[in-house]
Amino acid sequence: MSDNPKLTRKDFTSDQDVRWCPGCGDYSILANVQRLMPELDIPRENFVFVSGIGCSSRFPYYMNTYGFHTIHGRAPAFATGIKVSHPELSVWVVTGDGDGLSIGGNHLLHAIRRNLDIQLLLFNNRVYGLTKGQYSPTSLAGMKTKSSPVGSIDHPIEPISFALGAGASFVARTVDVDAKHLQEVLRRAQAHRGMSFVEILQNCPVYNDDEWLEVEDRKQRVEAALVLQDGQPLVWGPEDQRRGIRIEDGIPSIVALDPDDDPVSKGIAVHYERHETPAYAFALASFQRPAFPLPLGVFRAVEKPTYEDLLASEVSHSIEKEGPGDLAQLLNSGDTWTVDA
């Protein structure tokens, strides 16, 4: 692979005009993905981007890789067939909160549960963009839209908790405009062997502007975001006003820290991605604004056999045990009889 000529962002940019609204968070995500790809040391022909329907799902058209823009909500199922057929491919699913969690909730659940070695990026803008602004399954209760003129009465679903509940082996959250964090998370997702679920908080300036402003804006983020780092205590806030999070019996609480406090001795939880049970990651996923800072980074990363490996080993074991299939032998198996001429 390393003999390949060095590729650049341009090599991953297709000749199609990008058609998102000006200011859409998708632009930044696209640019960062295109920048990251050459660094992954994977031949360009081995990348496949698969999507469903929605603004985010136009993504594959803009990547100069193999791409399949499929039907609403079903991208994880298409990706499953692609990956199982050719496990050496680097398969990336791009979906949104409506595509992935509403119409496609079932497929997302099962793709995660099967633990295929694919990357799934869920762009969460908490609204339906392409159909012009209806509330989505992640919209906050009370959100006023054309289809909820007096406010949405749906209780929202929390994508990270959904993924954890489905048994995801890798779960992370990042932000559209934070180039460095986004690339770092995606690099980790790609390196993980198994289903990598990445929620990308994405701004839709047209229908749900500034939904994530607190974590997108560099200044506000210090207060609003908790950046997860493996082995580091759950601490955030400006230097002189640090706070930490204690988790007791699964219940998180906020503890104010003096500048020279050692967070660990104050009982602040230390982030650990590889807990055997997802309970800790669930606790993190429950942090919601404004009561808690919003965690960003890798929530959980554990090892689990992948679906395509298990399927391939069924095939190889069967060949070992029974020998390669012989069609004539199959057709003549069991009770047969011969009629002579």
Binding site: F68, G81, K83, S318, P324
Partner: peptide, 27 residues
């Protein structure tokens, strides 16, 4: 008959079954 190299997948529903099938065909 896995020894023929066939892969079968019991999908989560009918839609996933054909979607995965189309994905495999694409590949």
């Amino acid at each position: 008959y896995r020894n023929f190299g066939v892969k079968t997948m019991q999908a989560e529903d009918e839609i996933a079954a054909i979607s995965a099938t189309i994905g495999a065909s694409f590949s």
